[in-house]
Amino acid sequence: MVNPKRITKELADLQNEPVDNVVIEPNEDNIYRWTAIVSGPSGTPYEGGKFNLQLDFPIEYPFKAPKVKFNTKIYHPNVDDNGNMCVGIVKSEAWKPSTKAQTIILSILQLLQEPNPDDALVASIAEEYNKNRILFDKNAAEWTQKYAK
């Protein structure tokens, strides 16, 4: 087993200097499983929502990327129906061991502020985002009201 010193330090850093609008809760029994409660960024259709995410860090962390999943349903081109998300820096081909958990969390916040329809998991939502932003914003806001309270 890999020494959990790095993940323990990153967790302590995040608890001492939290990222705005994000609360990290480690699993009591497993330092490699975190829950993040992310507040939807203001000025986005996700504003006012509280999104529950799960971060599963592999035992090989930081040499392998964590898996990040939305437990709260969200209307977003980069998140599928199962909560799987497409965040560039955690893709295995793009992962770097120097990437920290804080960077991953900031990337998730950035994706909520600026979806990336060019790297979509849900093509229909990406198309709506590109072609009818008003409808996209309406649908995303409705889902936020329905699921992220």
Rank of each mutant, 00 (worst) to 15 (best):
K50D: 00
K69R: 13
Q102R: 15
S98L: 07
M85V: 10
A36Y: 00
K96R: 13
H76S: 11
T44Q: 03
P97F: 03
G83V: 06
V87T: 08
E60C: 10
D56F: 08
I104F: 06
A36L: 01
N82C: 13
P45S: 10
W95F: 06
K96C: 02
F70V: 01
V90T: 03
T99P: 06
I74C: 08
R33Q: 14
P26E: 10
K50Q: 12
K64Q: 14
K96Y: 00
V38Y: 01
Y46N: 01
P26K: 12
I74E: 03
V38S: 02
F51H: 05
N82R: 12
I104T: 07
T72H: 05
L53P: 02
I105A: 04
I59K: 14
T103V: 10
C86V: 09
I105R: 03
V68H: 04
I37F: 09
S42I: 15
W34H: 00
A65M: 06
T35A: 15
P97W: 03
E47R: 08
I31H: 14
K73E: 03
S39L: 11
K69Y: 00
G49R: 07
N27P: 06
D29C: 09
V87F: 10
D56H: 11
L53M: 12
S42Q: 13
G49H: 15
F63M: 08
S39H: 12
I104A: 07
G48M: 03
V38G: 01
T72Q: 06
Y46P: 02
F51V: 07
N52T: 15
C86I: 07
P58V: 12
Y32S: 08
L55C: 05
